[in-house]
Amino acid sequence: MFDIISFIPRAIVQGIPLLFGCTGETISEKSGSLNLGIPGVMYVGGICGVIGAFLYEQHAGGNVSAFPAVAIPLLACLLGSLLMGLLFSVLTITLRVNQNVVGLAMTTFGVGFGNFFGGSLIKLTGSDVPSIALSATSQYFSKALPFAQGTGVFGKLFFSYGFLAYVAVIIAFITAYVLKRTRTGLQLRAVGENPATADAAGINITKYKYLATCIGCMIAGLGGLYYVMDYASGVWSNDAFGDRGWLAIALVIFTLWRPNIAVFASFLFGGLYILYLFIPTGTDLAIKELYKMLPYVVTIIVLVITGMRNKRENQPPESLGLPYFREDR
């Protein structure tokens, strides 16, 4: 029997990291920066949060209190992802290095960075399993809304998540509104579509690109933080985050660069990601592995479909991936 009531919350918590990554990447791409370093940024965001939480737990000993337990990992995560964003921006916007090359390098770097410090922390704690548990701080991240208890099925579906999940949804909707309805959004889109035009209209291209890329990275980094501190209950083990970063980038295309669609699409992807756990396959592991392919199969199908549609509004920003230099002839 398919247990839909327990499936949906699991799908949503799976989707939240994707949603963070997708919103961040969308902001970045709208400014014309194709940041393929997002998977790496999410790793860095996660491990920086872990380092922050680890240091705090070491410092506080037994008496962990709510505010610093949340604020320190959060700030560490934002700082780490901001630095990654600045690295990408300096290389691609100021020095005009190829975005794909920088992005892929940053992903490799971010994953390595996460595993290196993850490994060091595991060594420091001297634990016998290859992972590090930060349950004291994690409980504050994964705390459900206070009135979630006793509201039955409804509460389980809507109120049973940690605060970062709601932050993800709110950020996505705010981003969608800003992009579509505000002057800032209009100008940001213009920068990504046609920087020469935006420049002639008096828009500071460099400022917009830097801000969009850095803010995008910080949002994506939160995805990593959510994954470790909430979803994984504060347990960091190397490579556990997997390829969710790439799924987040695929999601950007799937949602046609619209974060409001991404809210639902990320839950759908999250559902596909864990579907194999809910479909009775018995002991046949091979079939489970086939189900694990689903998110990627869907991504490929979606890419094919969007590739065939020709509506101009649904195309990627026109100057996506291209550097801009005003006096270029």
Partner: peptide, 23 residues
């Protein structure tokens, strides 16, 4: 022409203007 193709005429015209209030 310095115009953004996927924008409307009005969006292109107000682009880059710092007028007060919301768009």
């Amino acid at each position: 022409f310095k115009l953004v193709d996927v924008f409307t005429a009005a969006e292109n015209i107000v682009l880059g203007l710092e007028e007060k209030g919301r768009l």
